[in-house]
Structure formats: C-alpha cells, structure tokens
Design a protein around this nucleic acid. Structure first.
Lengths: 205, 205
DNA sequence: GGAACGGTTCGCCCTGCGGCGAATCGTCGT
DNA sequence: ACGACGATTCGCCGCAGGGCGAACCGTTCC
C-alpha cells in the first residue's frame, strides 16, 4: 500500500485493500497503524477516507527499501512465467510498469513531451509530440497545487529506473486498455500486449 | 545490529548479540537471515565471523528508516526518565551518542581536529587541537584502506544530526569511562556524567 | 592434549501478528 | 425514508516468528 502511494497521490481504503489483495477489515487495521505511526495521513471526505504518504521522508524510506528488496528467486515454473510477464508489462496500481512502460516513457522524453523522469519527482506535460497526441496527453490540464501531479517518476522494481506515473500515467494505461492495445490477465497484475499494441510500439522505433 | 554496522565497520557475531541485547543463538539466526537476504556479508577469520553491511544501498535504507522512526511516545514515568537519560548521553554500541556527544563532536570540528561530519561519510583526524590531545586522538594513525575508518558520522536518533563514530569515537568513549568522566548505568545504554566529566565539558565553553 | 571460547544447531515454548466473516456505524443517493 | 455502500469494530483462528537453553562443532591458546 505504501508503494501504491509513492506517487504522492491519495487513495481510499477500499482501493488500497484491492491493491494489496486483502479484505477491507485487514486493510483498515493496517492503515490505522500506518496513520498512528505517522507514515500516512488521512483525509475524511464523506463516507470515504483518503490516505497519502505523510512526508517525503516516508517516500525516501520506501524507495530505499525497494532498492534493496531482491526480486525473490523463482521456485516454480508457474512463478517463472508469471515473473516474465510481470517484467514485460503490468499495472502498477493505476499506471503501467515494466519493460514496455519504460519504452513508452523513454519515447515521450525523447520527443520532448515530458522532462526526463526522476524517481519521486513531479512534473508537467512539456510538449505535444506525436506520441503524446496519440495517447491523448496533449489536452492534459496543468496540475493545480495540491492536486495529483500530471507527471511523476515511479521507481520500477523490475527495471530499477523510474517509469511514468501521475495523471498522465493513468491516462496511458486507460488508453492501452480501452483501445485494445493490451489486455489484463485477471489473476495477477500482468498485462499482455495485443497485436495492435505491438504495432503501436513498433511505430516508436 | 544493522544500525550498529552503519559506520561501515565489521563486528563479530558475539558483539552484535550484545549490542542487540539477545543471546548468541538468537543473533546467529538473525545474522544468517540477513546474510541470506543480501543485507550483510560475512568474513570468517579463525573461530570468529565478522559481519558488515553488504552495500551502501543497505546503509541508505537503514538510515532512511531511522529518519522516519519516531521516538516512541512516553507511557510511564520510568520510561520518561530513562528516555531523558538516553537523550543526554548514551553508548551507541562502541562510541558516545546523545546531546553530550554532539557537544564534543562540535568542539572537535570547531578546533579543526576533524572535518564537519556528514551521516555515513568517513574522514580522518585533520588536526590536533587541545581537546583532541586531551582525548588522545592526536596519536591516531590514519586508517589503512579496508580498515575501520578513524572518523565517521553516525546519525544520532535523538538529535537528528551526526555524532562522531569510528575509531576516534570509540576512543573517546573509552576515555570517558576510563578516566571516570562518565559511568554506565547497567540497565540500559545510558551513561551519567560525573562531576569530573561535567568539568571537562565546562572547559569547552 | 585439554580447557576455553566463538559460533551454530536443535528442540521447544509462546506470544503476537495477519487474516477473515459477521455485524455495526455513518454517509450518500434517490 | 430507505437501501447501497464505504469503512470500522469485534471475535476468532492459525501460524510463523522471536527467543531461549542445552548440546555440539571447530579453533585457539597454554
């Protein structure tokens, strides 16, 4: 859940429960402790309760732990193929992660639509190259202060460098799913590129 | 135990057990896991086994966690007085920590005997002011490569800035104990300044 | 060669933690 | 006013993890 909040956004308890793969009561208990321990702060809005990281120092700690967390060794064939698929393309809560996600992020940087990404740093859409237009990022409104940032670097735990999160990251994921460029395999968070999606990526080269 | 190794030194299992306040079998089990998990590396020399942090990234993670670890709130009078004593002066494994330790470190920096401290960075004795001579630091041999550094900054968890560790830090602690400037209170790691010790500190001002 | 010592293994105890289902509370939509 | 829904509380279960004492292994020192 802490990793899911690394982009600085706020998420309600139910969403964090789904991300962590636990039932609401379990998530509630964990979140209560995280708030009590000062790692998270919460905002109550109506019947929802939104959580976010309390502090940049918390993000630092989570990222530092991510850096030393080993990809755990593979112990079965099934795990192996799952790991391969996850490394290729997966959902990182609401945006894309994995090798494919980095190809996309690199291309956006290349064409000047976003500034080079740094893990945890926020930014804006800085241009509208062909890829940005194709993904619908060119009509992205600049983030208001306090709102979720348009662009944010999120450390990719398979590739060890930041991919693109924030509102733009979420929009890219939606584009891939809505237009049938990728399909989700319900079991885990891995995604599979369709032929259409592969064609889109081929255009980048 | 990880915190105890933050200065980049190597320590044998028995010493780490004592620092952590657990029995040898317990320490052995923990150390085995830390090595297996790649957080520590070990070197066997004769019947001893020396452990040290595997990597700068491990030190980063430990320090990042230290920064967000709250001083836990006081729940009893006894805890309170203990906490006050610990904040004043305590052993941080083999060197001194707490408010008094920072006064000493500041004075050494002031007189040019050591360079300003940064958490985790190593250094050497750079001069021999009156305090350094009084503490016996002026005959400190420069650290050979691979050996324990003469000077090292170690983040102080009560004061939140680095105090002096390394060989010099250890020597200062010994000086305080040997010359009766401070006495250990066996229960915890806190130390109490004696009148003689208070006089030494008064000289600094 | 034998005692001392550092470290590990083994077997055991027990606490506390993580998880869930069912029930409850409070807010929102209609 | 009422049902749907997000979130929390309560009670319960199961287990794994932390810790220890005793015994054991290998090195060192005299």
């Amino acid at each position: 859940m802490l990793v899911a909040l690394l982009d600085g956004g706020s998420r309600p308890a139910s969403e964090l429960a789904a991300i962590a793969g636990v039932r609401p009561p379990t998530a509630s208990a964990h979140l209560a402790r995280l708030v009590e321990g000062g790692l998270l702060v919460d905002r109550r809005i109506g019947r929802h309760r939104y959580f976010e990281l309390a502090d940049a120092s918390v993000a630092d700690a989570v990222e530092a732990l991510q850096r030393i967390a080993p990809r755990r060794p593979v112990t079965s064939l099934r795990q192996s193929t799952t790991a391969v698929r996850l490394a290729e393309l997966r959902s990182c809560y609401d945006h894309l992660a994995g090798r494919v996600a980095l190809v996309i992020a690199d291309a956006l940087v290349q064409e000047g639509s976003v500034a080079p990404l740094t893990s945890g740093r926020v930014g804006e859409i800085t241009g509208s190259g062909p890829l940005a237009r194709r993904l619908g990022l060119d009509d992205e409104p600049p983030s208001a202060p306090g709102r979720r940032p348009a662009v944010r670097g999120c450390l990719d735990w398979t590739e060890r460098r930041p991919h693109l999160a924030g509102v733009a990251g979420a929009r890219i994921r939606l584009a891939f799913l809505d237009r049938g460029w990728a399909v989700g395999l319900s079991q885990d968070r891995s995604l599979r590129l369709t032929d259409a999606g592969r064609a889109v990526l081929a255009d980048l080269a």
